[in-house]
């Protein structure tokens, strides 16, 4: 059933957020540490491993693929509900700090990419097309 696929994502999100919250408390941080990341790891383990992945029926994967295809529309809705006015009105200091932080990362990225050249194994993207 399609709902099984959707339920799998929910279950992963619950467990992931649970671990993230507990981790945050253990570290004494007032925030969730990597909840979504853990949730994604669980989804990969469940759907991408030979153990369970091959057992998923076609209707179950429909539920997974549907929400995957909703990602970009959700992102569009997300940008439409951002506080853009505050971003602009924070003054030059906020704009400069934000922009320069992004620029610095853009400068670091190519060199980090080179440093880890030996990890070059990802020429082929094996992500499901949608």
């Amino acid at each position: 059933m399609t709902i099984y696929g959707v339920a799998i994502i929910s279950a992963c999100m619950f467990v992931g957020n649970f671990i993230g919250d507990v981790l945050g408390q253990l570290m004494g941080v007032d925030s969730n540490v990597g909840g979504v990341g853990f949730a994604m790891l669980f989804l990969i383990l469940i759907t991408g491993s030979d153990l369970y992945g091959s057992k998923l029926s076609e209707t179950t994967t429909k539920g997974l693929k549907y929400w995957q295809s909703m990602f970009i529309p959700v992102v569009a809705a997300m940008t439409a509900s951002q506080n853009v006015v505050q971003a602009v009105s924070g003054g030059p200091i906020a704009i400069l700090a934000g922009l320069l932080a992004v620029m610095t990362s853009f400068i670091i990225l190519p060199s980090l990419n080179k440093v880890f050249q030996s990890y070059e194994v990802d020429e082929e993207l094996e992500v499901a097309e949608n």
């Binding site: 909840g35 979504v36 989804l43 990969i44 991408g48 995957q68 809705a77 997300m78 509900s81 094996e126």
Partner: peptide, 22 residues
Amino acid sequence: LGGSMLRDFTIVSTAYGVTLSE
């Protein structure tokens, strides 16, 4: 639709199809 709940939910769903070795 664009709140953090559905944002995180759809982000998690994008992990479907990713291989573990990567």
